[in-house]
Design a protein around this nucleic acid. Structure first.
Length: 417
RNA sequence: GGUGGGGUGGCAGAGCGGUUGAAUGCGCAGGUUUCGAAAACCUGUAUGGCAGAAAUGCUAUCGCGAGUUCAAAUCUCGCCCCCACCGCCA
């Protein structure tokens, strides 16, 4: 959410940002409603002032009569104001955040810029199998019964894959805790305000599972509950930045992607994820540093696993509404002979914190909206695709990455006879 | 799910229709005092909005929403949350 002050002062910038993010907004309508809003507020204040002045003692007949008139007038103005506010809030809630100047302008993913590449894809002296083939032949997951029991994109992880998922998540969790991140296990059932607050809504409403008629939704990421953790609070500057590493199950409807990635575990309705979230000061320089730190954390994990990855700087058209700056991390997936998205690292500025009302008190006593950032640490089962495919052996077995061996308690998944 | 109690500022805790944005205490910040500190004393100490260059003024907010009234923290209704006990339960 951008402030009306900011919108008034930066009309052209916002128009350009929305265009570059492929979003339609009606700034003129917003400014018009804002004018009406301010005019009405002033009228209302004058009336309230008059009313309040007479409310301190026993009034005479005349004052009571005037009070009744004021009441009528106020009612009229207050009703128009509240309908204007509803309309205005709706329009403003759709205005996307303004990307930083250094973000490349582009229409879609083709405009993203590769800014880093790590590791050499391994040369296999045999025909590589897909994670799907590997998993099925090693009895690591069961998609047919997943589909039978859970529905489209349903899956069971079995045997060593089930162990591997716990292991990789725990490995990453512990790694970040050791770096000083506060460990959290977050709720996946969240109220609507958290989804609006983190700016999943209003854009992504068809992407989220809603539970019955309650104000209850299944969150697609721990970013939602963790960023909302301090909603409505004023933090102390000296306590910032707050860094969290959070685990949660994640649920996504994947509406509109019916034909996409239907095979295997790449795109599923529910998965587990360890997420990094930072609540920081209102300082873009500091946020850029923290953003690099988050990125390094993600990349170190890939390096620990010894799997090649690359870093993309996302262009305006592929970065999403609340972000001002965003990297995606993609990991090498041998079967597709290319990289697949594994993590997404964003600076949100004060876009989320304004919606969630998260501020901090500065040394001079004034308050300011925090900045928020988040980055995937590890998602599973998606990471299993990369592990299985990169660590596959000629005989159809899988070696276990060094750092995970002690956690799973075995060194390889042997090919079945 | 049932019964009872309760939600007021950073915390504790008054107020229960009319200068109450809110007593008092604690905490916190600044000052006086001191060689320094403690203590004591003094001053200040919520958030949003509108106007204003600013000083400042006005306005809203006592869990949330609606209502009664000239006037609501105070009365009425609905909702949410918290606490205690009972039941059920991974």
């Amino acid at each position: 959410m951008l402030s009306l002050d900011f919108i008034r002062a930066n009309k052209e910038k916002i128009i350009a940002a929305a265009k570059n993010k492929n979003r339609k907004i009606d700034i003129d309508k917003i400014l018009l409603l804002d004018d009406e809003r301010r005019e009405l507020i002033q009228k209302i204040q004058v009336l309230r002032e008059e009313r309040n002045k007479t409310s301190h003692g026993r009034p005479d007949e005349k004052t009571i009569q005037r009070g009744k008139e004021i009441k009528e007038e106020l009612k009229k103005f207050e009703e128009s104001l509240s309908s204007i506010l509803i309309e205005l809030d709706t329009l403003v809630s759709f205005v996307p955040n303004v990307p930083l100047d250094e973000v490349p302008i582009g229409k879609d993913e083709s405009g993203n810029v590769e800014v880093k590449k790590w590791g050499e894809p391994k040369k296999f002296d045999f025909e590589v199998k897909s994670h799907l083939d590997l998993g099925l032949s090693l009895d690591l997951f069961d998609l047919e019964r997943g589909s039978k029991v859970s529905g489209f994109r349903g899956y069971f992880l079995k045997n060593q894959a089930a162990q591997l998922q716990f292991a990789i998540l725990f490995y990453v969790f512990q790694k970040l805790v050791a770096k000083g991140y506060v460990p959290m296990i977050a709720p996946s059932i969240v109220k609507g305000f958290t989804l609006f607050g983190t700016a999943q809504f209003p854009w992504g409403e068809q992407e989220v599972y809603k539970l019955n008629d309650e104000d209850a939704y299944l969150s697609g990421t721990a970013e939602v509950p963790i960023t909302s953790y301090y909603s409505g609070e004023i933090l102390n500057e000296k306590d910032l930045p707050k860094k969290f590493v959070a685990f949660s199950p994640c649920f996504r409807r994947e509406a509109g992607s019916y034909g996409k990635d239907v095979k295997g575990l790449y795109r599923v309705h529910e998965f587990w994820k360890v997420e990094q979230v930072i609540i920081a000061k209102n300082d873009i320089k500091e946020s850029k540093k923290l953003h690099e730190e988050l990125q390094r954390n993600t990349e170190e994990i890939m390096e620990d696993l010894k799997i090649p990855y690359r870093r993309l700087l996302m262009c305006t058209g592929d970065m999403g509404e609340p972000q001002v700056y965003k990297y995606d991390t993609e990991i090498w997936m041998p079967y597709r002979n290319g990289y697949g998205e594994i993590a997404s690292n964003s600076i949100m500025g004060d876009f989320q914190t304004r919606r969630l009302k998260i501020k901090y008190r500065k040394k001079d006593g004034t308050t300011e909206y925090c900045y928020s950032l988040n980055d995937t640490a590890i998602p599973s089962p998606r990471i299993l695709i990369a592990i299985l495919e990169n660590y596959q052996q000629k005989d159809g077995g899988i070696k276990i990455p060094e750092v995970l061996k002690s956690l799973v308690g075995f060194k390889e998944i042997k090919a079945l006879a």
